[in-house]
Computed example of a mutant assay.
Amino acid sequence: MQYHSYKAEDFLTDDSFIAWVYNRDAAAAAFWSDWMAQAHPNRAEALLAKDILEALNVPETEVSEATLTHETGQILRRVSQSSERRKLPVLGRIWYAAALLILFLGAGWLVWRIPQKPPFLASLLPDARPKEGVVEQANRTDKPVQVTLPDGSTVRLQPNSRIQHVAGFGQKVRAVLLTGEAFFDVVPNPKVPFLVYARDVVTRVVGTSFTIRAYDELPQVTVAVRTGRVTVYSRKELEQQRNVEKPEVTGVVLTPNQQVVFNAKEEVFHKELVEKPVFVAKNAASVSFEFEDVPLAEVFRRIEETYEIDIVYNESLLQKCTLTASLTGLSLYEQLRLISKSLQGSYEVTDGKVLILATGCGE
């Protein structure tokens, strides 16, 4: 084959060239070593492609031709555009591409395609095509990285975290395998539910936002909901019910500001409120937390609607109680503590709900 007319993008998709760069074939190595030693007019294009391939190489992971084409396409286009605008010589294009690669790799943010599905992911996605690749995205920086999935959903990937999904994501299934921690903002699609597999749990949503924390070194997996509604299942129970004609899988339903902690050793879910509840209601910014002799029922109603949580209390015992206080700027727990103190009572959180323990309005 004649390579004298090849551009960098052509070399990047040539099997023989790739085999030489990654030292996979002795014959390719001999051919390209000899070819590079000659004064070909497009030798600089080959060097540029070689630099890009070496920069994109991921240890212990085979990089496919499709992935290389996808990941280097934007770099090459920007190199080409820069060349046209500035009339850069070939050497200038190489340095420009190198600068882009430093930015690309310096972010510690890598995307590649694994030619075959890992065994674990394959067992989760039995309907995926046998030869369908898996896209893996990893954050190797010390800051969160924003990832956009093919369906438009976004993932804020925390440091030392990664996600995997099949290349055909969103067509028949929207399933993601998470290692580490990430905040998901899922685009609604009732016809194609969104599933996140994180160690021992499976989180199922249609369209919502939530955080999952599932580092390998931690004994627990935590799922916390920001908006919408999610259901969390035990992966073990789901797999046991996979081939059952009428499966019965019990999941934990979570609503805003609720979270569940799953202990793999005990195989139990513990449902609670998140550590720092946030405003959820659309009009939350306009809700007043300044109270002047306001019935307690109204106080609780505002808090419930603002945080979209449930407050359980004895309505008959507290129906005549009122509150005069400023709760503006206080966290949810500070508000509850102040209200409980005014009642000479207390509060506790049970199964993701707030229980007010008081028998009257105090003195």
Rank of each mutant, 00 (worst) to 15 (best):
P118S: 10
A39S: 13
F183Y: 08
W20I: 03
V166Q: 02
A46C: 05
G133T: 08
V221Q: 08
T324C: 07
S286H: 06
S209L: 03
A107Q: 14
A66F: 12
Q171N: 15
D151G: 07
F279Q: 14
G360E: 12
R77A: 05
L330M: 07
R78L: 14
V260N: 06
F262L: 11
K50M: 05
E305N: 12
Q240Y: 02
V206N: 07
K353W: 03
G360Q: 13
V294R: 10
V249S: 06
E181W: 01
T141M: 13
S153N: 11
W20S: 05
Q335I: 09
Q81M: 04
Q220D: 05
L103F: 04
V166P: 01
Y233L: 09
A30W: 02
V223D: 03
G329A: 10
E292I: 06
L327Q: 07
L124T: 00
N243T: 07
V252I: 10
I309K: 10
K276V: 15
A358H: 01
S80I: 04
R174A: 08
A28D: 05
G92I: 10
W112L: 10
V261W: 01
V79L: 09
L330C: 01
L254A: 01
G92S: 06
F17W: 02
A325D: 02
R93H: 09
Y313M: 04
T67M: 10
D351V: 00
R302S: 14
F300E: 02
L355G: 09
H4L: 14
Q81P: 13
V260I: 10
E290M: 11
A30F: 03
A325V: 02
A27N: 08
L68A: 05
S316N: 13
Q146P: 01
P41N: 08
A37E: 12
E305V: 12
V134N: 03
T179I: 05
A26K: 10
D185N: 07
E304H: 14
P219S: 05
L355I: 10
F279D: 11
Y307N: 11
K131Q: 09
F300W: 07
G251N: 12
Q158G: 07
A214G: 08
G251H: 10
Q344I: 01
N243M: 13
C321R: 11
